[in-house]
Computed example of a mutant assay.
Amino acid sequence: MKVITFGEMKELTNRYKAIIKSPHKDLRLANMLDDMRQAYGIPLLRNNQFEHNNPYLMQMYRTVSFSREFMGGDTVVGY
């Protein structure tokens, strides 16, 4: 498992801000979530220990996840 650095968190934040302004944000947000899971070993199912050990990463993951919209604008409650 890779630990996120301050610089990587800043890059993720900048990527997120750029995506939110884009017209195809849902697809791009989904890709960002996949990239984060792959890069940092985020489990698909909720894991309290992982969340405890990676609070900043998981806050960013939730922010990205909660920003996605499905079926005409209903926000999905995610991870």
Rank of each mutant, 00 (worst) to 15 (best):
D74T: 13
S22T: 12
M60C: 05
T63F: 12
D35L: 06
P43K: 04
N48R: 12
P55V: 02
E11L: 08
M32K: 06
F66S: 14
M71V: 08
D26K: 13
A30M: 10
S67E: 10
D35S: 10
N53G: 01
I42S: 05
T63V: 14
Y79W: 08
R62H: 10
I19L: 06
R46A: 07
K2Y: 08
T5D: 05
D35H: 05
D35C: 04
N48I: 08
Y40G: 01
T75L: 15
T13A: 08
T75W: 07
F50A: 06
R37K: 13
D26A: 11
Q59I: 09
K25G: 07
N48K: 13
F70E: 14
M1Q: 08
N47F: 01
D35M: 07
R62T: 10
D74R: 13
Q59Y: 09
L45F: 09
Y61A: 07
A39L: 11
E11N: 07
F70K: 14
G7Y: 00
Q49N: 06
M58Q: 03
I4F: 04
G73L: 06
F70L: 14
M60K: 12
M1D: 06
M58W: 11
G73D: 03
A18C: 00
R46I: 04
Y56A: 01
M36E: 02
M60E: 13
L27M: 10
L57F: 01
M32E: 10
A30P: 00
A30I: 05
N54M: 01
D34F: 08
R15S: 14
V77P: 03
R37W: 02
N48H: 09
T5L: 00
E8F: 02
L29F: 15
I4M: 10
G41C: 02
N47K: 03
R46W: 11
N54A: 01
Q59S: 11
Y16S: 01
L57C: 02
F66C: 07
I42M: 01
A39R: 15
G7D: 12
N14C: 07
K21H: 08
Y16E: 01
N54G: 00
N47E: 04
P23W: 10
K25S: 12
L45C: 04
T13H: 09
T5A: 02
G78T: 14
R15F: 03
